[in-house]
Amino acid sequence: MRRLSAVVFDVDGTLVDSERDGHRVAFNAAFAEAGLPDRWDVETYGRLLAITGGAHRLAHWFENTGRTPAESWDLAQRLHRRKTALMRDMVSEGRIRPRPGALELIERLRAGGLRLHVATTGTRAWVAPLLAHTFGAVFDTIVTGTEVPQLKPHPAVYHEVLERTGLLPEQAVAVEDSANGVRAAVSAGLRCVAAQNSYTRTHDLSAAHLVADGLDDPELITWFDQYLRKTSRSAPRPG
C-alpha cells in the first residue's frame, strides 16, 4: 500500500450542512418566485436526494407531477439557474455552516502533511465561494459538476481529480456522506470514509472502509490518525 498523500472531500452533506436548510430552502424560494405551487418538505427532499444533481432532481419532480419530459427539463434548467443564485446569496450571508468537526479535521489533516482536494457534483458558482468563505484557501484542487457533466455515482469527478493532481487512486482517501458518493469514489479506486448525516443514515454505505456518525466521530479521527502515522513513518528523513 502506498502512503496516504491526499484526502478528497465531497461538499454537500459532507463538509457542510447544506441539504435540508440550504438547497431545499433555495429550491422552495425559486418555486415561490416563479409562482409555482411546488414545495419540498424535509421528508420529500430526503427522498429526492437519491437523484444526483439539482437540475436532474427538478426534472424528475416535474415529470412525476404531470409535465412532459421536454417541458420538465426546460423548466428545471431555468429554475436551477435561479436556485443557484439564491444558494450563492445564502453562502454570502453565512447561512451555510460547516458540519461539526469539519474545520478541526481539515486542520488535523493539513498538519499531518496531506493535500486536500474537492470532488463534488455541486455547481461551481456556489461551491467556490462557499469553500473560500467557510474554509479559506485550503483545497489544492476543486472539481465540480460544472466541469464534469457525469454526476455521482459515476466516478468521473474523482477521475478528474486524479488526473489533475497526478495521484494514483491508492494514494488518496475520499470522504463522502451518501451511497452515490461512496459508489463514485470506490469505482474510481479510492478508499472511502463515509460520514453519514440525518439524510443518509439509511443509505447502503457498506462499500466504505468506515461508516462514521460525522466528521467529529472519534472512530473517524482515529482511522485518519493511523494513516497519518503511517504517512509520517514512510516519509523520507531529512539528510
Rank of each mutant, 00 (worst) to 15 (best):
T121R: 01
A125V: 11
L49K: 07
R57I: 11
G13M: 00
K152D: 07
A32E: 15
E63R: 13
E219H: 11
I96R: 13
G113I: 09
L79Y: 06
S178P: 09
F27P: 05
R108I: 00
A125R: 14
A156G: 09
E33R: 12
R97H: 12
Y199M: 14
D12E: 13
R164Y: 06
D89F: 00
H117N: 10
I106N: 07
V186L: 03
R57W: 03
R57V: 10
S18L: 06
P218V: 07
L210K: 10
A172P: 12
R201S: 08
R124C: 04
G13K: 01
F62N: 07
A188L: 06
G13H: 03
W73S: 14
A188W: 02
E160G: 04
G166P: 13
D10V: 05
P100T: 00
D140C: 07
L167R: 12
T52S: 15
L114G: 09
D216L: 00
P153S: 03
P129M: 10
A125D: 15
T144Q: 06
G145R: 05
I106A: 10
Q150N: 03
G113V: 07
Y227F: 14
T144Y: 03
R233F: 14
D41C: 02
V157H: 09
Q150A: 12
H23P: 04
Y199D: 13
L220T: 08
R88V: 10
